[in-house]
Design a binder for these strands. Structure first.
Lengths: 183, 183
DNA sequence: TGACAATGACTGACTGGTCAGTCATAAAGT
DNA sequence: ACTTTATGACTGACCAGTCAGTCATTGTCA
């Protein structure tokens, strides 16, 4: 996976993958049909821990919706955006159009579930009166947009201008939930 | 450029590029040093019309900041996100880490200028009282985040679930500027 | 004006290197 | 002994980059 993340699908050499895995090239073909299906299966299996990282954080019982979203964002930024897992997301964005199977899987397992969960949270927030903007529930993408920005910024521009992703997300939450209580 | 967008740098064959351009492969080498510098130069020149599309829209004299941002977003979504130019942005995200020169250029010419302009608009909005959240000026990325989401959604997921990017952006603006006046 | 020469943009067959995928052989396991 | 698992040298396709040759255009001279 690290090889694919570093070089992309086409430029990755199976000799390097084998060396990195500590096996001979032939061994790869005992486990995978060809390079393409190896790539797809690797992504599929790599996404699983990414999902469990995200849903792994237990929501505090008495927490406000804002606290839940903020905790979620904190986990995402610390565990995904600023780590190699973030590059996995970038890899999917990069290769997705050429690997519809990958894009489909990612949509079904991550995007649609994540957005559904976020929508539920938003509706809870609306019901509790924490969120004023009812139409936000129609576009849960807005809630997570800065998180994706953080992933991309991290791998492309952080050397030019570091970005405090968590603080950015908090400002974003201020827009949605109203000004932050003093911290 | 279309070949690179469709296949990525590594998988693009110069024979195909030549054929598409209506010249022989050798001709390419009369204009470019090698495949890599061709890629970089092509991106550089392709970015120019992208920039001019975005700054090309004249701001109406009496327009509110919200109208200006919304007009900007409309242009972006119509002229970039839903066209081949959007895939150019995706290509830069995809290949950026392996072509620092491309990422640098994109940061200097598009990202840093765009964010600076957006920050100026935000500060104008704050001064005029249209925007309540002063800290938004620290993260102009938030303002454009849904636009980037739209680009990525378009090329990866629109077949699964079409996204009304402009409406999403309007909802996002509602968060920033307050509820929309009736339309 | 017409014949000839010079130019250089363009061509595409060719080369050398790279790499996905194979398979005869070897090692490990039972 | 024999089955399963692993190896890595090998093959053939592929492709970036080269370069000797072509030819339309422009310039020169009688």
């Amino acid at each position: 996976m690290d090889e694919f993340i570093a070089r992309g699908f086409a430029a990755t050499r199976l000799d390097d993958v084998a060396k990195r895995a500590g096996v001979a090239k032939g061994t790869i073909y005992l486990h995978f049909k060809d390079k393409e299906s190896m790539f797809e299966e690797l992504i599929r299996t790599a996404i699983v821990p990414l999902i469990s990282r995200l849903w792994g954080t237990p929501p505090q019982p008495g927490a406000s919706v804002r606290d839940m979203v903020e905790g979620f964002a904190k986990t995402f930024i610390e565990e995904v955006a600023t780590t190699r897992r973030g590059d996995l997301v970038r890899l999917i964005v990069a290769e997705g159009p050429r690997f519809p199977a990958v894009a489909d899987f990612y949509y079904r397992e991550v995007v649609s579930r994540g957005l559904a969960g976020m929508r539920a949270l938003i509706e809870l927030g609306i019901a509790r009166g924490e969120i004023q903007h009812k139409s936000l529930a129609r576009f849960p993408q807005i809630m997570v947009a800065p998180a994706l920005i953080a992933v991309i910024w991290q791998s492309l521009f952080s050397r030019h201008a570091p970005l405090d992703a968590l603080e950015m997300f908090r400002v974003h939450l201020d827009l949605i939930f109203g000004e932050r209580r003093t911290t």
